[in-house]
Design a protein around this nucleic acid. Structure first.
Lengths: 206, 206
DNA sequence: GAAAAACCCGAACAAGCTGTCCATCATCAT
DNA sequence: ATGATGATGGACAGCTTGTTCGGGTTTTTC
């Protein structure tokens, strides 16, 4: 049954994806040529174009697989701890642990190595995740929900990037704690002027 | 005296910079070729290479000018309102107003149109500014100062990007207020669970 | 096991971009 | 005005890209 994909084709595609990953870590996506990829993968020129229309097509193909996998991880994390309501941003832990496990993949995406396409893709994926986890209503209508989503996504990318560039690699739990401290409470607790009382949203001390 | 630069040279460079700016807004930096630039600027091929070693050199040259100008704006803002201590992040207003005035320039840098070089440059410039304005000591030593700086810079870029993509263009003051609300106080005031006093994740015992 | 189908490979091709060279010409200082 | 300076445009070889084609190999199907 030709229902399945030919083994040779599967082998070729896998080789191309691995070559792309390795080369992106070494040189970055934009500086890459198709020649480099087929040379690294040891694949003929026409073979490459028989599978993909160019290097961007190959890159996007990889993202389709990653997106599926990340959604699974999110579902699993949500099923494991259904504290979605009393613990906002609870899914951040799962993301940082996932990033620690697939550090190479994440490194190709974060920090400018991946080019504009990669940046866009990872932003879209994270945006969708955050949008699902964020409560549907916010207490302050002056701040659009859309903006809050982008803010959180940006904080994720910033944190991941800083984490990967760090010399001694911190454990995911510690990075997660720092991330949540800044995103949830802001940096008022860190600097002198705690101007929380200025706002009408007074501190509801227990 | 040929102390000053030849007028012809100045004219050529200005044309090249304007062409680069226009083309970056239209096609993005990475998709640009030297051919496109000299065609847009109506300049000969060898003329281009007589001034710059390539398109990246031209891009960086533009940044040298922008950096000077931004530092001036920062100094002016600091001189105008020397509330640097009782008003943290006070310089954010100046940045958003500057961005509103030079919207085209900023648009080329934010949102992936500028490529890796641009992203790096703007991050460096903003990092230096933030580092200067941030108090030297933080109340929580568990969070590195370096990480806080990157967090703020990322928030700036996220906010600027969201602002530019927005259909009806909001005034700088409003964007600034939203930015400061999120960065200073976090999103705890926005969502239900105000878990400020909770340090350990003992969410299950409830 | 054999025929048929699908796939991989290598070479060759036009088209486009890159960086450099040199002769020409406009602009500058004297 | 008149050399001297240096900006200018066009032509050049070298390289990468994306496509096409025929021959050879592996896989699937019967």
């Amino acid at each position: 049954m030709p229902r399945e994909i030919d083994r040779r084709a599967a082998r070729t595609r896998k080789a191309l994806h691995e070559a792309l990953l390795a080369l992106m870590l070494r040189k970055g996506y934009e500086a890459l040529s198709v020649q480099d990829i087929i040379d690294e993968a040891d694949v003929g020129r026409s073979t490459f174009y028989a599978h993909y229309t160019g290097k961007e097509d190959l890159l996007r193909s990889g993202f389709r697989m990653l997106r599926e996998e990340l959604k699974e991880a999110q579902s699993a994390a949500r099923a494991g701890a259904e504290a979605s309501h009393d613990d906002p941003l609870g899914f951040s832990t799962a993301i940082f642990e996932h990033a620690a496990r697939y550090a190479d993949h994440y490194r190709t995406m974060i920090g400018g190595r991946g080019g504009a396409v990669t940046e866009n893709e990872i932003r879209l994926i994270l945006s969708e995740m955050v949008r699902q986890e964020l409560p549907p209503t916010l207490h302050d209508e002056a701040i659009p929900r859309d903006f809050v989503v982008q803010f959180i996504v940006g904080a994720f990318l910033t944190t991941l990037n800083w984490w990967f560039e760090r010399k001694p690699k911190l454990p995911p739990s510690q990075v997660d704690a720092m991330f949540r401290s800044l995103v949830l409470d802001g940096l008022s607790p860190l600097i002198g002027g705690d101007r929380r009382s200025v706002d009408s949203q007074a501190a509801k001390s227990r």
